[in-house]
Nucleic acid binder design. Structure first.
Lengths: 111, 111
DNA sequence: CCAACGCATATCCATATGGGTATACAATTC
DNA sequence: GAATTGTATACCCATATGGATATGCGTTGG
C-alpha cells in the first residue's frame, strides 16, 4: 500500500502546510477562491485542489454566490485532531514541571 | 514537487495511523521494538521504519539496552500540533453554544 | 566461539501527491 | 450572444510512501 490519501482524514489533509494556511485564512472569515489565491500566492488550480481536499474531509463548506464560490471553515472537522493531541498535553506539561523543580533545587543549592 | 516527506514535521509524521498507535503505546511506558511489533501486529521492519520517522521528527528517543532498543515518547514534539488546533477550539465550541441557544429557544416556543 | 535473538537497512513495487499548464464551464457584463 | 470573469478539472511528471521480503550486524547464551 502507498501512503494514505490526503483525503483519508483530517490528519492527512492538514499535514500539508498550504492547507493549514487556507484554514487559517478562513478562520477569520469566509472567502471566495480568488481571495485565497492572493493570500497563498499559489496558482488558482492548486488552491482549488487544496480546497477540494479540505471539502472531502469536511473541513470547509462551499456556497455559490453568483460566479464566485465562497468557502467557509467547518472547525468541528479538526476536533478529532485536538482530542488526540490533547491527551498528550499533560505529558509535556509534567515534564516542564519536573524541569522547574530541578531548577528550583539548583537555586536552593546555590544559597 | 511531490507530497511533503513524512519526516518533514510532526504533522506529517502523525498523519499515519500506525505511527499514532505507536505513540499511544509509548504514552503508557517506554517499550522495546518487539513489544511494539506485538501491539501493532505489523512486521518488524515496518515498525522499525515507522520508529525511524518518529525519531527524525523528535517524537521518540531511543536507548540501547543490551540487544534491545528501548523507545520512549518525547511528547514535546506534539506541542506544535496542539498549539495549532487549540486556536480553533473556541470556534467549534462557539458553534456548539449557538446550537444550544437555538434548542433553548425552540423549547420555550413549545411552552 | 557459534547459534539465536533483536533490530536496522536495502530493494522491489503500486500508488497518488502536488506542482505546472491548458482547458472546460457556468455566470456575468457589454 | 460574444467576451470576460471565477473556478474546477484533466493531464504530465518527479518523488517517496508503505507494504513485502531478504539480509546485515551487534549482543547474548550455551
Amino acid at each position: 500500500m502507498a501512503r494514505a490519501a490526503t483525503t483519508a482524514d483530517a490528519f492527512n489533509a492538514v499535514a500539508e502546510p498550504r492547507r493549514r494556511e487556507i484554514l487559517d485564512a478562513l478562520a477569520q472569515r469566509e472567502r471566495p477562491v480568488n481571495e485565497l489565491v492572493d493570500i497563498l500566492g499559489l496558482a488558482q488550480p492548486h488552491v482549488s485542489r487544496h480546497l477540494r481536499v479540505l471539502r472531502e474531509v469536511g473541513a470547509v463548506d462551499v456556497r455559490d454566490e453568483g460566479r464566485q464560490r465562497v468557502y467557509r471553515l467547518n472547525p468541528e472537522a479538526l476536533k478529532p485532531i485536538h482530542d488526540w493531541v490533547a491527551s498528550y498535553q499533560h505529558l509535556w506539561e509534567e515534564r516542564f514541571d519536573l524541569l522547574e523543580d530541578v531548577l528550583e533545587d539548583l537555586k536552593e543549592q546555590e544559597n
